[in-house]
């Protein structure tokens, strides 16, 4: 990016101040959002130590009363109370969204690394890897979920050990679907990064007596996985958003619950704007988190070269 110089004009300085104010606002919103989620989850797990399970953390009436007393916000008081009334339900759905995304991402990662390595260094396995990634990236995720759920009826075949972990076993089908799909996309990003590692790195590894596999493991991957972080973050963000498709195979995650309430109360506008904002909060958290990770693991002296 150009223009990394010191702000010179008054206008730039003012906009700089705006940026830091915006930053502060963002951090505050983040703390509020995650604080609310964590307290809601813990409250539910511990059987309602803070408020009875199913009740909002703050009484809707209290919010309504407080807002109604402020002339500027009085018109929104009843809407706000309505949203507050929904919060336990939304928090519960968000828990599933977070778990599905997290588990799929991590398991998918462990599939993606061998897929990427096979694609770059394999012969026959390169073709298998290519076929897998092309197939999964070439068909809609929703169709894949339908194949697993409606077509193969996997919901009935959840192993006993996994059964009952979630309120509905179909959650596992969703996790399987997102894992398989995400692995293909992650493999594509990681492959790009593996290819960007200089060939001389493997040669040098081989020259000190490491085997090819050891060279890949100790030399290529530690570099490639670092380089992959920015593009890999995209996949993280995509997965958060596309986890909403689990609703269509009856997984009661965030979108599912929003849709349920909306169809009961007909307050589509409010509910989906709030839901959208919650996804946005998850997405922003993920990308800020990965920016941190990227800075943290950057190789000294190489950081500036990769900055875009």
């Amino acid at each position: 990016m150009a223009g990394a110089t010191r702000p010179t004009t008054v206008r730039e300085r003012v906009s700089d101040a705006d940026v830091s104010a915006g930053r502060l606002l963002l951090v505050a919103a983040g703390v509020l959002f995650w604080g609310w989620l964590l307290v809601s989850w813990v409250n539910r797990w511990l059987g309602g130590v803070v408020v009875p399970v199913g009740d909002p953390l703050v009484a809707p009436g209290l919010v309504e009363g407080a807002l109604a007393s402020l002339p500027a916000l009085a018109t929104y008081a009843s809407d706000a109370a309505f949203v507050v009334q929904l919060t336990p339900n939304l928090a519960q759905g968000t828990w599933l969204t977070v778990v599905i995304t997290g588990v799929s991402l991590v398991v998918g990662f462990f599939l993606a690394v061998p897929l990427a390595v096979a694609r770059v260094y394999g012969r026959f396995s390169a073709w298998l890897s290519l076929a897998y990634t092309e197939l999964l990236r070439g068909t809609p995720l929703l169709a894949q979920l339908f194949v697993l759920y409606y077509g193969l009826n996997l919901g009935r075949y959840v192993p006993g050990a996994l059964s009952g972990v979630f309120p509905r076993d179909v959650v596992w089908v969703a996790i399987l679907g997102f894992t398989l799909n995400g692995a293909a996309y992650q493999a594509e990003y990681i492959r790009g990064a593996v290819e960007s590692v200089d060939e001389g790195q493997i040669t040098a590894g081989r020259a000190i007596g490491l085997s090819k596999v050891e060279s890949i493991y100790h030399v290529v991957l530690p570099q490639a996985l670092r380089y992959a972080i920015p593009s890999w973050t995209n996949e993280f963000v995509y997965l958060i958003k596309y986890s909403s498709l689990a609703a269509f195979i009856t997984v009661p995650e965030l979108y599912y619950r929003a849709d349920q309430v909306a169809s009961e109360t007909f307050r589509y506008t409010l509910i989906f704007v709030v839901t959208g904002a919650m996804y946005l909060a998850l997405v922003i958290t993920a990308s800020k988190l990965m920016e941190r990770v990227d800075d943290r693991v950057a190789i000294p002296g190489l950081g500036a070269a990769r900055e875009r």
């Binding site: 963000v237 958003k241 596309y242 986890s243 909403s244 498709l245 609703a247 979108y255 849709d259 909306a262 589509y268 506008t269 989906f272 704007v273 839901t275 959208g276 996804y279 946005l280 997405v283 922003i284």
Partner: peptide, 19 residues
């Protein structure tokens, strides 16, 4: 742009349709 890229497409579609 940030808002549109940070929201699931299904939410965007529903908002367009119902809202």
């Amino acid at each position: 742009g940030v808002v549109l890229r940070g929201t699931p497409i299904v939410v965007i579609l529903i908002v367009m349709y119902f809202v």
